[in-house]
Design a protein around this nucleic acid. Sequence first.
RNA 1: GCGUCUGUAGCUCAGUGGAUAGAGCAAUGCCCUCCGGAGGCAUGUGCGACGGUUCGACUCCGUUCAGACGCUCCA
Length: 588
Amino acid sequence: MKTLLELITIDMREAFAKAGYDEELAKVTLSNRPDLCEYQCNGAMAGAKKYKKAPFVIAEDVAENLKDSVYFESVDVVKPGFINLKLAPESVSSYLNEMAGEEKLGVEEEKDPRTVMIDYGGPNVAKPLHVGHLRSAIIGESVKRIIRFKGNRVIGDIHLGDWGYQMGLIITELKKRRPDLPYFDENFKGEYPEEAPFTISELEEIYPTASAYAKENEEYREEALHATYLLQNGCRGYRAIWNHIMNVSVADLKKNYERLNVEFDLWKGEADAQQYIPDMVQMLKDKGFARYDEGALVVDVQEETDNKEVPPCMILKSDGAALYDTTDLATLVEREKDYQPDEVIYVVDKRQELHFTQVFRCAKKTGIVRPETELKFLGFGTMNGKDGKPFKTREGGVMRLENLIREIDEEMYKKIMDNRTVEEEEARQTAQTVGLAAIKYGDLSNQASKDYIFDVDRFTSFEGNTGPYILYTIVRIKSILNKYQQNGGSTEGLEIRPAENAYEKALMLQVLKFNDVFDAVYAETAPHKLCAYIYDLANEFNKFYHETKILSEEDEQKRTGYIALLVLAKRVLESCIDLLGFEAPERM
RNA sequence: GCGUCUGUAGCUCAGUGGAUAGAGCAAUGCCCUCCGGAGGCAUGUGCGACGGUUCGACUCCGUUCAGACGCUCCA
């Protein structure tokens, strides 16, 4: 169904046209003076110059032609030339009833669904997940759900960092520790063991150890580089180790991401793109896109309109090895072959922007992707501690994701036990649900592109603009509805009635905005606007709740009308948090 | 050095070229204590600075100050 803004705009355009003015002026927006009106149109002022008339006169002409519109209770023309609109309660309630009958609450699906891929700029295997991986997972998951909700086909690819020097380091360190393993025996012709020669904890210790040692020891570094080379060029034993590393790591990653309620459709990685590199390089050479510069193969991506220097895209190092430009390009080759995406969104640290500018330009210029393919960089900022510096543990190290989540869960558990007498097991369960909401809402309520301060105390608070507060509101509605049902009431087939007081109307107007808000969120890929919306919605509900006796309302029509409104408000809230990637418990 | 991003209340953050720039936290004072008080109401302080465009600028464009980040063979 059309959003209310679209419906009003149709009438407004008609009114402008009838009065003899350009329809393009008929832009309706939400009011920024809620005390005066609910929606407004400022087109009269914009048109004053063109028609050489006082804006006030234009506005009055237009308002005259709005009289037939069914939507308004009042149309006021004010001072310079504002057209202030108030909705009729009847049209609000009937719109809401229509919304309640729609599975997607009035959001219209895309007429031509697109295929969108999301690249999470994935974690490196063999390294523990740390807080730096949190944002891409949380933001990416929400963006995926939002685009999918609009009816598109979305494919999320974690895009693991699973190829390169880090693997060489692990192999080298393993060889040093366990030279007796068959993987290091060149004459070994049998089957390698199925069991990995290390656990995930060992793996997580091996990598940093090796990495640190390589920085001090040149010989060791050379060996690791050579091991990388051997791995990439088909050494059977090393490939077997690589498989072990992948199996062990991926199992662990899946566990962690599951805990975050984050899912990937594809577990591809850099390694998967390797097979596409040789042909791609050949193509770049054959078609004359690539040139040699100081021994390295590069593609120029500088454009005339640039006011800065954009370095060329590096395809091969002077020693012939591939780089991350190469891998990202080859990945696009692979995606084009397998999925022909209409759009690829990279949810990665904003510091990588230059790199992706190079890759996007190169991919377009060389025809690796079609000209109409949208390549989008969705860069996010750093998660900082209270001191405004990148988030660290108390000891100053990198905070492991697992520990961060545990800390939040503990905090939530304490708060739940303080305020309620619940079974320990239920409290633990609830703490996890609410804790996840605290983390995700805390992240998503900020603009993705900005750095933000991760403040455990603030995010886990039940007051203010937080995840727990939103959940609390939902739980409160659930509680009322449950009580209503226990008393024999049914929530099926009820009609929302026209609002009779300001609180009721305010709540209705807020619910009403859902599809308009969603469309903006979708168009701008801006989950934080969804957060702002549900925070307002939760506030409007709480005000309404405070002013209105719901279950004890004696007039049955009114009572069932309230219930119908609560049912719809709850659905909207639940849909929104689902789009954000978390859910509400039954009690808390 | 060049470039990108950010700068809004004491703190954390919103703000689609429009009317009186908003929330939360913190502070102070009230209200309700009824379906879940994890509420409601009120009070105080602010668009880094200077210009320009515009009928109208936190928003667009310059200049400047401050901070973060990035600038070919790590990712």
